[in-house]
Every structure is written in C-alpha cells, then in structure tokens.
C-alpha cells in the first residue's frame, strides 16, 4: 500500500518544529489525557502532525511531547521492543508504541486517526503512564527465580537441548504488561494474577533445573490463579514478543490437573 499524499496544511505546527519531511502525511493522534494535578477527569486531546510511513507511533508521541505539548507523559526507553516500557492501547489493542509502524496504520480512505490510551486495569498516574506496582506484585508472588536445593555443582548444571527448549518461549517475556492488561478477566478482577505472572511461573515450572514447581502450582491453583483464565487469546495477540501466552497458561492448567490426579 502506498502512503496517502500530504493533503492538508501544516500551518498549525510550531514554527521551531523540524521541517516536515518529504513523503510525510498529516495524521490525527487522539490521546486520552489525565493529569490529576490539574484535571478532574480523563479527557481526549487531538493533535494533527506529520507522519512518515517508517515512523513508529512512539515517534509521533515524541513529536507531540517535544514540539507541541511538553506535559504529555509516557514511559519509553529502548525504542525497539526489548525494554517493555511503552505498552499502550493503540487503536483499541495493546501494543508497544515503538513497534507499531505508521505504514501499517494509514487509513485506506480519508485522513488517518490513531487513538492512544493507557493500558487498562492498572491505575492511571498521568496520561499514558500507569502504576505498574500491582503488576509486579503478581509477578513477585509466583516466586520468579530458580529454586534448587542441595550442593551446587562445581561447573554448570547439565540441561539437555530438549529440556532447555521446553520453556524457551516463556523466557522471552519483557514484563511490559501488554498481555495482562488486555485480559478481560484482569480488567474486572484485579486480584487475578494475570497472564504475565503465569507466563513467568511457566518459565520456572518447566525448567528441568528448578525444584519449586509444586509450590508455584499451589499458588496458581488459588481462587485468583489460572482457573480464572477464559481462554480469550487477547494476551497472545497482545504479546509483542510473540509468546504463545494462552498456550502457556493451558500448559500450567494441565500440569495442575495431572498432578492432582
């Protein structure tokens, strides 16, 4: 698909903003804003700015912050999808802003509008920035570290290629919360551990070197554990790392059923 051509004025842009690059299109970015220091409630604000097909949504947010409204607040760091800072709801789905390319976002007809909201289910602190504490609390609760007893070997523990492969997928998690905050169960019941915590439990439960699988399974057998999952696959769709999140949750469920029998 070719990008639509520039068809509207750029007169509203600040005079000291960088010149609009060749091939850029004017788009509208509609952002859900909230700053408890000054706002009584959430509200939407729209910005018309230039976008290149190669821009990521993060570039657009930076443009707004750097040249139009310095109070716009969001987290970001690596800008290429490995640090997990910039999960947000873009056109209604959870994505990392640094991994959504504008070439995939341009409207087929008429002007493009992109909506950006904070991820759902965690308290909004300011604009797109949410309180991550409840998310990390659930992560910490599943004992996300290797538990091994007995004398340590002199060299490394031996683990076969197949044993290592068994939990490879769930080692990819970057704790961005895109999965957990895409889950309808998590939205309605914040006490649910959520997909990310289960993914990380999976990473250890299926690690041949670990000895605390039973303990973690007990934790996840809780009323707020894996049984809350309704298999909606939102989490799998949301994961920017391509982790088969729902499959991992199902594997934890099966481990529980198998062990209880």
């Amino acid at each position: 698909m070719t990008a639509p051509t520039t068809n509207s004025t750029t007169a509203d842009l600040p005079s000291d903003a960088p010149p609009v690059p060749e091939g850029a299109t004017m788009v509208t970015v509609k952002i859900e804003r909230y700053n408890p220091e000054v706002d009584d409630d959430l509200h939407w604000e729209s910005y018309r700015i230039p976008a290149l097909p190669s821009d990521r949504v993060l570039n657009l947010l930076h443009y707004i912050k750097w040249y139009i409204d310095g109070t716009l607040t969001f987290r970001r760091s690596c800008a290429h999808g490995v640090c997990g800072s910039d999960a947000m709801r873009i056109n209604g789905v959870n994505r990392l802003a640094c991994k959504v390319l504008m070439k995939d976002m341009f409207a087929k007809k008429g002007e493009t509008t992109i909506t950006v909201e904070p991820i759902k289910g965690l308290p909004v602190e300011k604009d797109l920035l949410v309180n991550m504490e409840p998310f990390f609390e659930a992560y910490r609760a599943i004992k996300p570290y290797l538990v091994a007893t007995g004398n340590e070997p002199t060299r490394e523990r031996i683990q076969s290629v197949a044993e290592r492969e068994r939990f490879d997928d769930t080692t990819k998690c970057i704790l961005c919360a895109a999965c957990t905050t895409s889950c309808p169960v998590y939205w309605s019941e914040g006490s649910y551990f959520g997909p990310a915590a289960i993914v990380n439990a999976h990473r250890f439960i299926f690690d041949s070197r670990d000895e605390a699988a039973e303990e973690r399974l007990d934790i996840l057998n809780d009323v707020d554990g894996v049984w809350r999952c309704r298999t909606t696959f939102n989490c799998t769709d949301a994961c920017p790392r391509g982790i088969q999140v729902t499959k991992a949750i199902q594997e934890v469920k099966r481990a529980l059923m198998f062990r209880r029998r």
Binding site: R75, C78, S85
Partner: peptide, 10 residues
C-alpha cells in the same frame, strides 16, 4: 527506570 527496562536487556 523500572529495573528490567535498562539497556543491558538489549
């Protein structure tokens, strides 16, 4: 930053 956001991860 939050601990796991650091650039070691890259």
């Amino acid at each position: 930053l939050y601990p796991t956001r650091s650039h070691t991860g890259a």
